[in-house]
Amino acid sequence: MKQAKVRSGQGVDTITIEKAAVPDPGPGEALIRITAATLNYRDLIVAKGLIPGLGKEPEVIPLSCSAAFVEAVGSGVTRVAPGDRVTPIFAPHWLTGGEPDPRMLGGPIDGVARQFAVFEAESLCRLPDMMSDLEAATLSCAALTAWSALTSSRITSPGDWILAHGTGGVSIAALQLAKAMGANVAITSSSDAKLARAASLGADLCINYRHQPDWAAAVRTALGDRPIANVIDTVGAVQVEDNASLLCEGGQLSAIGMLGSDFSWNLAGADVNLAPIGVGNREQHEAMTRFMVECQIRPVVDVVYDLERLSDAYHHLESGAFFGKIGINLL
């Protein structure tokens, strides 16, 4: 089989594609054949060492989100069977409960940028028939992060205003999920073309922060004083004050990313309801999948690369010149 590896913290250009033996499943395990994967900004964090120690040393099989078929199972496996269409969850040992497990794919442990892999069967979730492999390969990290932000600490209600920053995987998933929950969504981007695509998915207010640098004032002008129930903040600490200034009473600042600065996880103040979002567990993953099927939500994959061009896919991710998700073909 083919698999990718990256030297943790040494940069995107250390990615290599190599051949490896197909593993055998042991007791309680399943061998899966991976057909598609998608990238997350976290994959750049691991490759570039933006958070020291996040990636397994000296190298790791990257990526955390995939679609696959069960090829074989070991003894004692009842959760899945050969032929089932599945995905391993982002944190394979975090099945339930609120305390995240630090053993996450594509970072502390090997991920899914490979054609075959063995995982504990309990870490596998079935994929919905309504989604293609590439669409389903968006669920484990980006979609689940958005779902957790909208449901885990503060339940999104019809009529709420949600503010999502940017048009990457988490923000577009949040837009789709929030609209299906009956919420209104404001979204920011530096690209009018991307904002037009967001509007086609239901975004109610689109703000180009390059044309309107004081985007927070633009939100207030359009919606009134402190109108936002939940901010999907993928940018980080640099804009915590602006985000907090828009929150209604009981509103939540969902701290998710670091696209523009350090994470804001540790910046909660007396008047800021800041919720660090750590993706989610198997129970949340399955609840999200049921909701997406019920609401017929189809994730957005913008461009697809073959595994051999994984480093090009990373550079595309780094450029920001994409909408939704970047896919990887593993067939």
Rank of each mutant, 00 (worst) to 15 (best):
N40L: 13
D233Y: 03
A244Q: 12
T188H: 06
K5G: 13
A244I: 14
R85I: 03
Y305G: 06
S140T: 13
L144E: 07
G251A: 09
K5W: 06
G83S: 13
G98P: 05
M181K: 09
S66A: 14
D312E: 12
M131R: 04
G55L: 03
V240Y: 02
A199M: 08
M258I: 08
G202A: 12
G260D: 00
T138W: 03
K5Y: 11
T14W: 08
R103A: 15
P52E: 08
S191D: 02
S319E: 08
V118H: 00
V304W: 13
P92S: 10
L163N: 04
H93D: 14
V22K: 15
L139Q: 01
A222F: 03
G269K: 07
N184V: 08
A117C: 06
K48W: 00
Q212D: 10
Y41S: 10
T234N: 07
D271G: 04
L201A: 02
W147G: 12
G260E: 01
D110G: 06
Q239N: 15
G97M: 03
G74R: 09
Q296V: 11
P213Q: 14
G107M: 04
I32N: 01
A72L: 13
L50G: 01
E71G: 05
W147R: 05
L163W: 00
T138F: 06
G236V: 09
K2N: 15
T78N: 15
E99I: 12
M130R: 10
H165A: 02
V279P: 01
A137S: 13
K325V: 01
G98S: 07
S148L: 05
V80F: 00
G74N: 11
A217Q: 10
A270R: 15
M181I: 00
A186S: 13
D13C: 03
L246T: 04
L317F: 00
A142D: 12
Q284R: 03
V22P: 10
D101I: 14
G320Q: 09
P227S: 03
I232R: 07
T35K: 15
G111W: 04
V73K: 05
A173Y: 14
P23E: 08
L124A: 04
A193V: 01
D302K: 11
G26Q: 06
K179P: 03
L205S: 12
D84S: 09
V80W: 02
R226N: 09
C125F: 12
P128D: 11
T156I: 02
E135L: 04
I256R: 08
L307G: 10
P100R: 05
A270L: 15
P276Q: 03
I34N: 01
Y41K: 09
I328L: 00
K56H: 15
S245Y: 05
Y41G: 13
A47P: 02
P227M: 03
T289L: 15
R7W: 11
V219R: 00
Q239S: 12
F116K: 01
G260Q: 01
T38C: 15
G251I: 02
H211D: 13
Q212Y: 09
E18W: 12
S64P: 12
A229Q: 04
P82K: 06
T16H: 09
T38E: 08
L31I: 07
A174R: 10
P58C: 06
S171C: 09
L63R: 00
G280T: 06
R226A: 11
D233V: 01
Q252K: 07
Q115L: 11
S191M: 04
I109A: 00
S148R: 14
W161I: 13
E99F: 13
A217K: 09
